[in-house]
Structures are given as C-alpha cells and as structure tokens.
Design a protein around this nucleic acid. Sequence first.
DNA 1: AAAATGTTTTTTCCCGATAAAAGACATTAC
DNA 2: GTAATGTCTTTTATCGGGAAAAAACATTTT
Lengths: 300, 300
Amino acid sequence: MSKSNNVYKDAFNRCLRLLDETKSLPSEPELGTLLGVSRTTVRSILSRMEETGLIAWNKRSKTVLRAPRPEDFFPEEETDSLAEIIERSFMRRLLAEGAEAGMQINELELAREIGVGTTSVREFLIRFSRFGLIEKRRNSHWVLKGFTRAFALELTEIREMFELRSAAAFAALPEDSAVWADLDRLEVEHRQLASEIATRFNEFSELDERFHRLIHRASHNRFIVDFYDVIAMIFHYHYQWNKAEERQRNEVAVQEHLAYIAALKSRDPGKVDAACRKHLKSARQTLLSSIPEGRQAQPA
Amino acid sequence: MSKSNNVYKDAFNRCLRLLDETKSLPSEPELGTLLGVSRTTVRSILSRMEETGLIAWNKRSKTVLRAPRPEDFFPEEETDSLAEIIERSFMRRLLAEGAEAGMQINELELAREIGVGTTSVREFLIRFSRFGLIEKRRNSHWVLKGFTRAFALELTEIREMFELRSAAAFAALPEDSAVWADLDRLEVEHRQLASEIATRFNEFSELDERFHRLIHRASHNRFIVDFYDVIAMIFHYHYQWNKAEERQRNEVAVQEHLAYIAALKSRDPGKVDAACRKHLKSARQTLLSSIPEGRQAQPA
DNA sequence: AAAATGTTTTTTCCCGATAAAAGACATTAC
DNA sequence: GTAATGTCTTTTATCGGGAAAAAACATTTT
C-alpha cells in the first residue's frame, strides 16, 4: 500500500453532492475543474457512479439515475490526506498536557504511533518547522520549543506589525479596487452573524480568517501573506481545544471587526490604525489568557 | 547506497587540522563536542587515523605520529551533505538565464539531473519553499515564482521593518548585556577589514551576516531571527554569481556598518534609526540594481 | 476545428529497507 | 565514583519501488 486514494474518495463525495442539483453531469474536463482534480480521477469517479447505478454513462451522456444515498458516500475519515492526518495527531500531542518545551521529537515513534511511513512524518515536520514551534538538530532529533507564552508574544508581535501595515495599505487602495466589494460582502456576513450570534458563534473562526486574509493581501507582500498561515494554524488548533468563553469572545470580535471595517471604509489612516490596534490588542489578550501559566519554557 | 558518510569525512578532515596543533588527542567525548559529531563517528575517525599511521591509539592514549599530508584529506566534494549539493544545483538553475517565473519544477527531473533520490529533492523543495521563491500545487508540480524585482522588493520591505525594530531593541539593551562585547569585537573586525579592503573585500559577506544576525537577535523574536535565513540565502547565492563592483560595494558597506555600530553604541534612538535606514537603503539599491531588467514576473 | 473521449506516459506520494550516525548501556580505567 | 572506553540499540538520512493521480498524446464526436 503505497498511496491512499483519498483524492479520489474526497472528490467522489463532493461529486455525489452535485448529483442532487442536476439531471446530467458536464464534460470530463469541466468536472475536473469543478472538483479540482485531473481527468484521470474524474473518470474513476464516473466509473464507480456507473457501477453503483448512480448514473448511466456513455461517452458524453452522463444521466443521473437516482439520488445519492448515505451509503454511497465514502467514510469521512478516508477522505483526509496523510498530511492532514499527521498534522492533527501531532497537534493533539502538542497541545495536550505534558508537551513541555525542550522535549525531543522522534520521527520513528511518531510514524509508528500514527501508523504511517517515516517519510511522511519527516516531510510534515519540515513543513511544520516554519511555524516556529519545533527546531531541528542536524543529523539528530527535532526539539519541541513548546506552545509557550513567549511563543504567543513573538507571534502577536509580528502579527501586529504586519496587520497595521496591511490595514494602512488597504485603506490607501484606489476607489475602484475590487477589494472594496469584497469588504462590503464581508461586512454583510458579519452583520448576519452578529444578529444570530447566539446560535452561530462557532462560524466566526472561518469568517475571521477570510477577513484578515483579505486585509493582509493588500500588503502585496508574499511574506506578510504567508505569515498569516502561522496565525491561522495556531488559532485553528488552539481554539479547537479551548472552548472557554467562546461565544462571548466571538461576539466581541465580530463587533470589533465591524468597527474595523467601518474605519477602513472611512479611509482615514488614523481611524484605521486605532480600530486595528484595538482589535489586535483584544486578540492578543484572548490568546494569552488561554495559555496555561504552567506552560513556560524550560531553561536550556 | 542509502546514505553517504559525509559527516564522517568532513569531521575527519577537520580533525586532521587539529593534529597540527597537538601531540595527542583528547578523549572521545571531548573530540565529539569539538567536532560536533557523536562518539560513534569520532571512533570511526580514530580508527582510520590509526590505520593510516597518523596516530597510535590505545584506549586513552592517542599519540600523534606524523603531520597530516594533503593525500590524507578526503576530497572536498565528498564532505558536502546531500542537502547542500541539491541546494547548490537548484540555485544555479534558479539564477541562471531562462529561469522564468511561472515555470514548472519537476521533482523527478531534478532528482535525475542531480543524481539523487526523489525523497531528498522533495524534502529540499519543502524546506526551500519558505523562501517564497517557489509554490506547491497540491498533488502536482511546484511553480517557480522567480527571482524578480517584486521578490526583492517584498524581501527588503520585511527586512527593513525587522531590522529597524531589532536595532532599536539592541540600543535599548542594558549596559551589562553581553551583546556590547560582541559588538566591540565585530567593530574591531570591521576596522581590520576596512584597512585591508583592497585584498580582503571578499571576506565581507561572512562578516556582514554575523553583524546583522547579532542585531536581529536583540529582537528576541524567533520569526525575526529566522527571517534572516531568507536574506542570508539570497545574498549568499546572488552575490556568488554577481561579482560586479563587489569590491567597491563592500567598501561602502563596511563604512556604513562602522557608522551603524557607532550609532548603536551611542544608544541614541534617533541616530540608530538614521544609520540603520541609510545602510538598508543602500543594501536595497545594490540588490535591485543587480537584478536584470528582463527578469520580470509573467502575467499569471 | 474545437472540444470531447479514449489511451498511454509521466510524475507525485508514500512505504519499506538499509547504511550512517546518534544514543544508551555496560564495563573498565584512573 | 567520575569519566573514560567498549559494545549494543535506536534513529536518521536516503534510496528504489509501486500505486494513485496528473499530464500528454491519440482518436473520435459534434
């Protein structure tokens, strides 16, 4: 078993959802673009859909025969890529108790525990290293630096530097730039979410990420844009395992975003700076307050 | 052949140079620390030294029998790690003519060309991706973004942001911090180099890196410190293949560094900021002027 | 002839295996 | 009894191979 077919399975599931909407499927290249996979994979999907009686397939005609049933779908867990599986396992360990700074990370042990080859674990660790949480000793093990208070402070320092600059660049964008329409759409989504915050507060994370990425993109600097990956990763996992006060936290953040959006639309540098600072400050507070006090770096 | 023994060969060569200085070698653990390798490797080295009549080895006594001869050394090219070999080959391609933005990068082709396994190339590309010059298409090839004017501008933008902040932090460091002694030493080295610039101008690169790293370290922020890797890599390769006006360029830079050092020692924030800005500005100019005009990003 | 389908080739992703190197444990020397 | 040496075990670095997925090429359909 050298490579799982999760790409196929995931695309198959997504394709099933398309069946509900139409009576017949489009051409193979079109489906490929739609699903983000190659024609090879599209044809595998169509083959199986034909076999299981979902469609009748003859060259260009792909007629839907019946609606998909729950058992037609591949199980969710089989649609994840190896990288995602490894990332999740690793993050669970990292944020769990007992993951102290200075700890060694063993590729072989990780691989065995997760049930994957060492190559995949190595590649993951190399990719992950840019988040600043682990460090490699040449020809030897990785060292965990730990999700410490220091890490959070260093992260937010850069974030604030980058976002203040991006926000200023955003506000200076010409009137006819497409970003203003994007911002308007995000504003509407924020208002909707604000009005139903009691039930939909957990949808904030995703909106938050889209909003900040839009702002960072205005910097037109790949290093700033890429750095948001670090922030997004930390927030994603950290809040996934730390639900305390989530609702109230998000309620406050939505309002801050709305003020921030208003400031951007005013295009007044002073107002933008103030609104941005205010939001970043409370974001930092939230992150810091959720780091256990005991989680300190060990002396080297 | 699964792994080359370049660690051993490199450490062996370095150990040979130690023979000149002493009549007998220290203990195995001590040698290990000195050479930065494990005892296992130290023992391999000692074995060979005994075999080739360089030392007499019996338990604790390791007496030097003769001075090392040129033929005792392993060839230089056998002491490089695979990662270094791949990096050099890749950078040569990248900075050569014809490496246009948008070009595809083929792991298999690279591996065959360099004569290594695909795994090593993959790992290299993942590590290299943080430099912002290449980008991965999921389940598909890498795309070259190219060493363009835009790249240089984005890089220097961050560099300037980080270095101004680091320099300010540096100047604010307490009198008894160890960095002031480090700075003094660097100042002496700068003065020495300045006085012999006509013959030693090519030693500037290394000094430059040590100087800027010292400053960046004052930020106490891992993201700032790590970002210097990007700068160092670009400067290293770029100047290696671009020797135009090297002497004059370095002569100017040394003087700027000396002014910068003086400003830091004055601990006057205004002076530090001015000296830092001046140096960064000329560094940016130098980098930009050396990028061929034709090297522009292609429309997506 | 443009765009689809059918077929073949190439590349990516991932595993298992193996030598190099590190690390751990046992024993000896000072 | 500390610190070295001697020996054994584990981990890392790297390759080759094979299935999944992409990409390229050939053929047909509209």
